[in-house]
Structure formats: structure tokens, C-alpha cells
Computed example of a mutant assay.
Amino acid sequence: MLLPSLALGQGRTAPKDAYLYFVSPTDGDTVKGAFRCRFGLRNMGVTHAGDSFGNSGHHHLLIDADEPISPGEPIPQDRKHLHYGAGETEALIELPPGKHTLQLVLGDGMHFNFDPPLLSKKITITVSNASERHGQNLAHAHRRTGHLAARTARSAAQPSGADAPPPDPSKSAGAVDFIRNQIFGTK
């Protein structure tokens, strides 16, 4: 029973004006640590694996893959060939530091390449060193701590709640009062 389904998936053609591309990152970008990868597709629909709607498919992300993409062949599933069979159009990707190539391929409902394959342009990105990111986060934490210490010192110099003047009752106390004023025209 599985063989007829597989045979249906092989050799599907995509519209001639279909276009697969990266929304982000773009070719030559440098990213730090985990990054959001967004997929774009024009003149076709994105659907789930297993669906056999015409002019539709789902995304596959190829990472550092140099193997040729053959028409009508199944797309492998491994660390270099990530499947997004739930119809995802973006993913959080984490790669080791260094240069990497990324390419999208659209597969049909059965994970087969279209004939001819529908591929994005291959892009190259650089993932920066995680230890640099850790150093930047540490510096940022120190700056935040410095701001917090200055704010605490200012707070200590101001009168406490017992010494502060009572709030002005004519001023709105918050969002609930603002909404009440808008609905009922009260102050």
C-alpha cells in the first residue's frame, strides 16, 4: 500500500514561476549563537508532509550539504537535511562557530524533490564564537549591575513610602481606571 503513495510523490513538477528563498539570514551575514532562519516561497503553498495538494510542499533546510539534488528523489533526513514537515516557515538554528552554507529545497508531501528540484540560492553565513558572546553578555551584565547600583543609591536618597506625599486622587491609578474613564466617562 505504501508503494503507490511513493510513486505518486515522485516526479511532481512545480510551477515555472515558483521561487524559494531565505528571508533571513542573508548571504554573508554573521550570526551569534542560535539564530532565527526564515523561509520564503512565492507562487506555491506551504503544507504538511503527507498532504498531496497541488502546487504545494514543505521546506527542507540543507546545512553544509554538497550532494547533488536529484529530481524525483527522496530528500534524506539527517543532520545536514532538516525536514519541516509540519509546514514551518521558520526555525531556530544553532550551529558551531565558523562558516556554513545553507540552502532550502522544497519537497512534496512525501519528501520527494520536485522535477526539476525547487531550490533556493545557496548562502554562506558565519557563526561567531560563543565565547565572544559570553564575554559580551558578561559585560552587559556588569553594565546592568552598575545601573542597578546607581538606581538603588538614588532610591535610598529619596524619602521612604511613609515620608512620601499621598497620591493625587485626581490622577488615574492605572489601566483599569483609564478603561473605566473611557467607557463610563468618569474620572
Rank of each mutant, 00 (worst) to 15 (best):
M1W: 02
L3Q: 11
P4H: 02
P4S: 04
S5R: 05
S5N: 08
L6S: 09
L6N: 15
L6V: 14
G9K: 06
G11M: 09
G11Y: 04
T13G: 13
P15H: 09
A18K: 02
Y19T: 09
Y21M: 04
S24M: 02
S24E: 15
S24T: 14
P25N: 10
D27K: 12
G28I: 09
D29I: 06
T30M: 10
V31T: 13
K32T: 09
A34Q: 10
A34G: 11
F35R: 10
R36M: 07
R36H: 08
F39G: 04
R42V: 00
M44A: 02
V46R: 03
H48E: 07
A49N: 01
A49W: 00
D51G: 13
N55E: 09
L62Q: 06
I63C: 11
I63N: 08
A65F: 01
A65R: 04
D66P: 01
I69K: 04
P71E: 03
G72D: 14
E73S: 04
P76I: 10
Q77F: 07
R79A: 08
H81Q: 03
H83D: 08
Y84H: 12
Y84F: 15
G85E: 11
G85R: 01
I93H: 09
L95Y: 13
P97K: 13
G98V: 07
G98C: 06
Q103V: 00
Q103H: 00
Q103M: 01
L106A: 04
G107I: 01
F112Y: 15
F112W: 02
F112H: 13
K121I: 09
K121N: 13
K122R: 15
T124G: 07
I125M: 14
I125D: 14
I125G: 15
T126H: 12
V127H: 12
S128Q: 09
A130M: 00
S131T: 13
E132V: 11
R133P: 06
H134M: 13
G135T: 10
Q136R: 12
Q136P: 00
N137K: 12
A139M: 02
A139K: 08
A141W: 03
A141R: 05
T145V: 12
G146P: 00
H147W: 02
A150E: 14
R151F: 01
R151D: 09
T152M: 05
R154K: 07
A156G: 00
G161E: 14
A162R: 08
A162I: 04
D163G: 02
P166C: 07
P166E: 04
P167S: 05
P167F: 02
D168V: 03
K171H: 11
A175T: 12
V176S: 14
V176I: 12
V176C: 10
R180E: 04
I183N: 07
F184M: 09
F184Q: 09
G185P: 11
K187R: 13
